[in-house]
Computed example of a mutant assay.
Amino acid sequence: MKLVFDVGGTAVKYGVADEEGNYSFTDSVPTPQSDVEEFLQVAGSIFEKAAREYALDGVAFSFPGEVHSREGVIKGISAVEYLHEIPLKTILEERFGGLPVTMANDANCAAMGELWKGVAKEYQNVVFVICGTGIGGAVIERGKLDKGVTMNRGEFGNFPMGGFKDGALLSWSDYTLEKQARKYNIRKEPAEAPIDGIRLDQLALEGDLLAEELMEEFCYWMAVGCITLEFAFDPELIAIGGGISGNPGIIDRIQKTVVSMLKGQHQGYLMPRITACTNGSRANLYGALYYHLYGEKIEIE
């Protein structure tokens, strides 16, 4: 049995699974905010409890950031900065009594989870767009994960979009649903209780003009991003994951915006096929386990 962790900026999801991806249970705790020692204490406590009930023979992690899986180091920007630039894999293996530990980027885990047990299992060439507070992504080519030279392939949230504002280069991640909700909270007059992305979409459907404007902007930039990905990778499928994947109405509006933008344009000969990921909150848990089981076999060198 494997203990699997999905570490995010606000929560750590975890569970114990067999090699077929059947989870005996899943649960979550708040992500430790102070330092690596607190993180090890929390992860160690979960491990010790699981080890009393299950015969564990490995531990798999999904982490945010620029995860160098083979080196066992996180080198890039993420929501859990105290885990950066330390021999994390070695530290974890020591904490877990020498059991083998694997670690992979969260967006890559989401992609691998969908490749194994989700929307992409019948395909070989799929681009994933993972939407949260920012935008991550992953590229599956010929059935394997391609992480690029610096492990940054698929960091689509860094695509420049919208020019400069206040001296900063805007990017795709500046137009996520949660970022649009934040804009609503700032611009709404008179001020109301803060809303999230789900509520923003509801308000737009109810006829709130500001919410409609911000949702149109969201769909526009999602469409631009997907069209860009279509020509960059020519995939069989563009799969959208993260929080919005559970809302078929939003995915449908993004597809319709793409169709509207390309109608009559010479780029329209290559129409993106967009769909939602299907594993929801379990995608990273499936993917981290999949990577633990198959590791380098599923990566393009």
Rank of each mutant, 00 (worst) to 15 (best):
S260Q: 12
E213N: 14
D252P: 00
I300R: 15
K263F: 11
T257I: 03
R282A: 11
V119G: 02
P30M: 03
P32E: 02
V126P: 09
S173F: 00
M222V: 02
C131N: 12
K121P: 06
L115V: 10
E189W: 03
L270V: 09
Q265I: 04
A191T: 12
L210K: 05
I198R: 15
R70Q: 14
A107N: 07
Y54S: 05
E299S: 05
E94M: 05
I186N: 09
I135F: 00
R95S: 15
E20Q: 14
A79W: 00
L3N: 07
G76M: 07
G58E: 10
I195S: 07
G58Y: 09
T176S: 01
Q202H: 11
G72Q: 08
I227G: 01
D196F: 03
F61A: 01
L99A: 09
G58V: 11
R253N: 10
V119C: 06
V259I: 13
E189V: 14
E48I: 05
E85S: 13
T26R: 12
D196Y: 07
A79M: 02
G154L: 02
G295P: 10
N105V: 09
L209A: 15
P190Q: 05
K13H: 15
H266F: 14
G143A: 06
P272K: 01
F5T: 10
V42Y: 04
F233P: 08
G207N: 12
P64T: 03
R282D: 13
G143R: 09
V149S: 11
A168W: 06
M261P: 04
F231V: 08
A104C: 06
G98N: 11
Y286A: 00
M215Q: 13
L270E: 12
D6N: 06
I77Q: 11
L56R: 07
F218I: 04
N105C: 06
K13Q: 14
I250N: 01
I130Q: 02
H292C: 14
A110F: 15
Y175K: 00
I91R: 08
P194E: 07
G58S: 11
V149K: 14
D174G: 00
C226F: 00
H292S: 14
A50F: 10
K2N: 13
N279I: 07
M215T: 11
D166P: 06
E230R: 09
V126I: 12
P190G: 04
L115A: 11
V16P: 12
D106V: 02
E141P: 00
G15C: 13
A11D: 13
C226E: 05
Y175P: 08
E38M: 05
V7C: 09
A191D: 04
G97W: 08
E53T: 12
D146E: 13
F5S: 07
G280A: 03
D57V: 07
E94W: 00
